[in-house]
Design a protein around this nucleic acid. Sequence first.
DNA 1: GCTGAAAGCGAAGCGTG
DNA 2: CACGCTTCGCTTTCAGC
Lengths: 150, 150
Amino acid sequence: MDEIDVQILKLLERTGRLSHEEIGKLVHISRPAVHQRVAKLEKNGVIKGYRAIIDWRMLEQKIQVFIFVKVKCQSFQQITAKILNITLENGAILECQRLAGEWCMVLKVRVSSPDDITRFLDELVTFSEVYETSTTFILSTLHENGFSEL
Amino acid sequence: MDEIDVQILKLLERTGRLSHEEIGKLVHISRPAVHQRVAKLEKNGVIKGYRAIIDWRMLEQKIQVFIFVKVKCQSFQQITAKILNITLENGAILECQRLAGEWCMVLKVRVSSPDDITRFLDELVTFSEVYETSTTFILSTLHENGFSEL
DNA sequence: GCTGAAAGCGAAGCGTG
DNA sequence: CACGCTTCGCTTTCAGC
């Protein structure tokens, strides 16, 4: 794991479909060497995968919210699994982070209407482990996934 | 923009490097048709780009925090631009969301040591528009970018 | 369908620790 | 010797028209 590996990671993070040949030119090593390094980085999990970045706001799903949650439970894993299994008709749970501080965790959720959030919260509070939630609407995304809206 | 487009988006969101041929098989249309639809989705910005998902925690940068910020200013854009221009030596600003509610915005930041956060906050509060911040550490990421750690 | 580009694979040679 | 990089060629697959 040297400086060249880090350069490759930064390039692929920005342009996930960059060809090995292009990468080779940019970091000044040969194409097979790039292949070898990328394969290694994928194998050991530094590169977790490749994604297309979709702007769901251009479709029906224009609302994003943070839902802060307090839980009291034996197994954090178990309640998290239950929460992540909640199905959103027109939306998705984008993120679930365990937090230090006042709140135990935060969810980032994308939906198409406030009603979807209501339904989600109703389902969330059926879990006895969940004893408090707080929902904060995202007004606009100024920077995300390496894209700035400025 | 029909159901097939949505299927294609979901496939590419999960597997950013899926070939047109594979997509065609999965959604039951021909390869040129896939080409046409993907090109259209890229052109009109529904597909914003392609990214490799990098696990920076496997390198030096193991800490992620949310920094909530209150600002009072004429131009939100301007102060946001200034904040996003803050350089982090061993880290990055991953996200900047404008919020409804008590806090004006939240930043998600990745760094390698608490000192980096200190430096970042020190720089943040030099801006006269910023009048309050609150930093919350992320203990663990349970779900992000379509990856679950359960 | 055709063409060109790229990935994936292996072989052989080179320099360094 | 082991390791990583390089150059080369080959085949398969894919993108773009």
